[in-house]
Amino acid sequence: MADQPDTNRLLDTMADALRAMDLEALDPVVIGIHTGGAWVADALASRLALDAPSGTIDISFYRDDFSRIGLHPQIRPSHLPVPVDNRVVLLVDDVLHTGRTIRAAMNEIFDYGRPERIILAVLASRPGRELPIAPDVVGLAFDALPPGGHLRLTGPDPLTLGIEVTA
């Protein structure tokens, strides 16, 4: 990877922002989007020492490009440990780009119930939004990436966010 921000520092920044929201008092259910979002959710839950239940969702069947790209080869089951009805949901993903993954995740969450509120936390946000979706908490917001640049999270141990440039 060409450039690597300090992922631990970004996670610490996110945890501080969530503490400032008095997240513990909201008693959230923490939901990470497979795969990178689940890794980030675990890292945040550890930093925050939340007693909150945590779960994961795989949005493969909720993607709006499913008919074009087909079935992803590594579909994982979604696991929500508690009902989401009238609960605060902390939805976590690694990179926010077009907003379509978050839209798909919210569609799946609403299939499980009607949350009181969804708080969106992402490790990184990049330009290119196609839907009006914005994070409540973001580790690092990129204004631009190099031509052909993509953000990629590797992990889970260690978690490393980097910029890859493809020709």
Rank of each mutant, 00 (worst) to 15 (best):
P5W: 07
P5I: 02
R9M: 01
L11N: 01
M14K: 07
A15P: 00
A17S: 15
L18S: 07
D22N: 11
E24P: 00
L26A: 15
D27E: 15
V29K: 07
V30Y: 02
V30T: 14
G32Y: 12
H34G: 09
T35A: 11
A38C: 14
D42Y: 02
A45D: 05
S46G: 03
L48V: 01
A49L: 02
G55N: 09
I57A: 09
D58P: 10
R63A: 10
F66Y: 12
R68L: 14
I75C: 10
S78D: 07
S78Y: 03
V84C: 12
R87M: 10
V88I: 13
L90P: 08
V95G: 08
T98D: 01
N107A: 13
F110W: 05
Y112S: 12
Y112H: 14
R117K: 15
R117L: 12
I118M: 08
L120E: 12
L123W: 13
S125T: 15
E130L: 06
P132M: 05
D136S: 11
F142L: 08
D143C: 07
L145F: 07
P146Y: 05
P146T: 00
H150T: 00
L153H: 03
L153E: 09
T154M: 00
P156L: 05
L161I: 07
E164A: 10
V165E: 06
